[in-house]
Design a protein around this nucleic acid. Structure first.
Length: 551
RNA sequence: GAGGGCGUAGCUCAGUCGGUAGAGCAACGGACUUUUAAUCCGUAGGUCUCGGGUUCGAGCCCCGACGCCCUCACCA
């Protein structure tokens, strides 16, 4: 990035030229930055008012927008003007305007905001146009716009100067606004089912509810260290205790970790809790939330429209292919999926050990880097920023050991099962359509309720679509003593550096007051938006992703 | 954190063997009253990301820094 320092410094030659015109506008008696402009209509709304035949005036209209393109033909000036709804051509004809008007128009540049009155009328070549009768400047642009054909190509500039990206890059604004539609839909679904939206603190004295490194900040008056939240869970459960029985929060969480195509340090999470429900109730809710959001996207015109069948099946584009979100979605147990893809029964621990050794032995001997195909494993890696939604870890204590360090004889069989699952199952499930994977091995979900009648299983599900983990839900643990014990076990294995994940005594106290049995759900909203808008990178669906500051 | 790639005019990009900087758009001046990335004629526009080094000479080669991108690792 070598553009001049943002917002300051001496004007470059382009800015100087524009300032000259600005001064001229002032001389002509106009405010170059305009003022309130009433009565204008969205361009998309006035375009249909144009007569079909060239040469006859249609309705009188008033619009406001930004000059995107200019063409000259003798004493005619054609401008393309864009507003939030669309684009239209303006025609300024020297013969129709006063000297003063022509002079004012001559001071306009690409990027300027103008207000226009005129008549809808088709040009000889059939272009929908406004024949301008009067106009005003609403905002002088001092910046040179990008190249008119290619627009902004430089990724860094597009991200740093998102305002320009939004104006000049095709589809950027539409996609980012789709995010708003999706979030709207999520709220609507939850509201219609009786969930109440709440806002809980972002500043936490103890950053709990997930295993992640927090951002640290400081409150001056109290002189205490605070953390930006890494999850919503613990406060929402306190609200369950407090009698808010169906509750959710759509909130920003912050995790002080790496940045890549699927990770931004701040991202949006949905967590919903339903008293007297369980993970089955959350499955229904998850399906409703995602299906309705997908419909909202489809209704917006995004994606595939194969006329007749559009309403029958809920199909959206994904990469080269599609995803079919038509409900109901299959619900398959972890054990079934394991057996199908690994070829052995999850309960056959001897076979699991043998399979693990057979597959991972090479990795134990050789550096991982030598075997890239093994690289992208780990459910939580695949999950990206899906909420972990609970101080749970896939191993009971501390950091999960890398496969290379595992001793298959000593390790809990569930841990081996989990690694084999990540390796052989996850990449293959949810291809082109969602799948609920249910009933996880209990040992890898220590903070989930055991399945009734099957204590080796946990009442948990994850939703997979195209190998990507989109939602994670549990039947929540509401036994204060067990929770406290599990906190302890977990903290015992943590290195000093991460001991900021302290015991949350108040949370235990809350559980002792009595939390109803409940289903809890977490959905990574950014993930969901990526999926529904066919976005391969998170930067496409966050207005201002974090970048290193310009120097 | 490791490896690779990129950084040249406001923007999009060329730049040969190391010989001292190019185009298109945009800007500025001009022609043209129905254009569609209008066209045509002309003018101007550069700290080649930054700092060192090699060389008679560096956009190009070497070292370092910065930023972005990709892959991998880590993390949820």
């Amino acid at each position: 990035m070598n553009a001049p320092a943002p917002g300051s410094g001496r004007p470059d030659r382009f800015e100087a030229a524009r300032l000259e015109k600005l001064n001229k506008i002032v001389e002509l008696g106009h405010d170059p930055f305009g003022q309130r402009f009433d009565g204008h209509r969205p361009i998309a709304e006035i375009r249909p008012l144009c007569p079909e035949a060239a040469g006859t005036d249609g309705a009188a209209v008033r619009i406001a927008g930004r000059i995107m393109l200019r063409r000259k033909a003798g004493k005619l000036r054609f401008f393309d003007v864009q507003d939030a709804s669309g684009k239209v051509q303006l025609l300024f004809s020297r013969g129709d305007l006063t000297d003063a008007q022509w002079e004012l128009m001559s001071q306009f540049d690409l990027g300027d905001l103008i207000g226009v009155d005129g008549a809808m009328r088709r040009t000889e070549s059939g272009e929908v146009s406004i024949f301008v009768r009067d106009f005003t400047i609403l905002g002088k642009s001092l910046a040179q716009p990008p190249e008119k054909w290619h627009g902004l190509e430089d990724v860094e500039t597009r991200l740093r100067q998102r305002y320009s990206d939004l104006i000049y890059s095709e589809g950027v604004r539409d996609k980012l606004l789709l995010r708003s539609r999706i979030v709207d839909s999520v709220r609507q679904t939850l509201r219609s089912r009786g969930f109440v939206e709440v806002e809980t603190p972002v500043l936490h004295a103890i950053a709990g509810g997930a295993a992640a490194r927090p951002f640290i900040t400081h409150h001056n008056a109290l002189d205490i260290q605070l953390f930006l939240r890494i999850a919503l869970e613990l406060h929402l459960k306190r609200l369950l205790v407090g009698g808010i029985e169906k509750v959710y929060e759509l909130g920003r969480v912050f995790r002080n970790e790496g940045i890549d195509a699927t990770h931004n340090p701040e991202f949006t999470m949905l967590e919903a809790y339903q008293a007297y429900g369980d993970y089955e109730s959350m499955m229904d809710l998850t399906e409703a939330v995602v299906v309705n959001a997908a419909r909202a996207v489809q209704d917006s015109g995004f994606g595939i429209q194969d006329s007749g069948k559009a309403n029958e099946r809920l199909v959206l584009p994904w990469g080269e292919g599609t995803i079919d979100l038509t409900p109901p979605w299959p619900r398959t147990t972890y054990g079934e999926l394991f057996e199908k893809h690994v070829g052995i029964a999850m309960t056959d621990h001897a076979a699991v050990r043998a399979k693990w050794r057979e597959h991972f032995r090479a990795r134990v001997a050789a550096p991982v880097a030598a075997n890239p195909s093994l690289a992208a494993t780990g459910e939580d890696h695949v999950a990206g920023q899906h909420p972990s939604h609970g101080p749970r870890k896939d191993q009971p204590a501390g950091k999960p050991p890398a496969p290379t360090q595992l001793d298959p004889e000593a390790a809990h069989p569930d841990v081996l099962i989990s690694e084999l699952f990540e390796e052989f199952v996850e990449p293959h499930i949810g291809r082109g359509a969602p799948v609920f994977c249910t009933d996880y091995p209990a040992a890898i979900c220590p903070l989930t309720k055991r399945k009734r009648g099957a204590p080796h299983l946990a009442e948990r599900f994850e939703l997979f679509i195209n190998g990507m983990e989109l939602a994670n839900a549990y039947t929540e643990l509401n036994d204060a003593r067990l929770q406290e014990e599990l906190f302890r076990t977990q903290l015992a294995g943590l290195p000093e550096e991460e001991s900021m994940a302290k015991m949350d005594h108040d949370f235990i106290r809350a559980l002792k007051v009595g939390m109803p049995p409940a289903g809890g759900l977490g959905i990574g909203i950014d993930r969901l938006v990526m999926l529904l808008t066919n976005s391969q990178t998170i930067r496409d669906i966050i207005f201002f992703p974090l970048l290193r500051p310009e120097t």
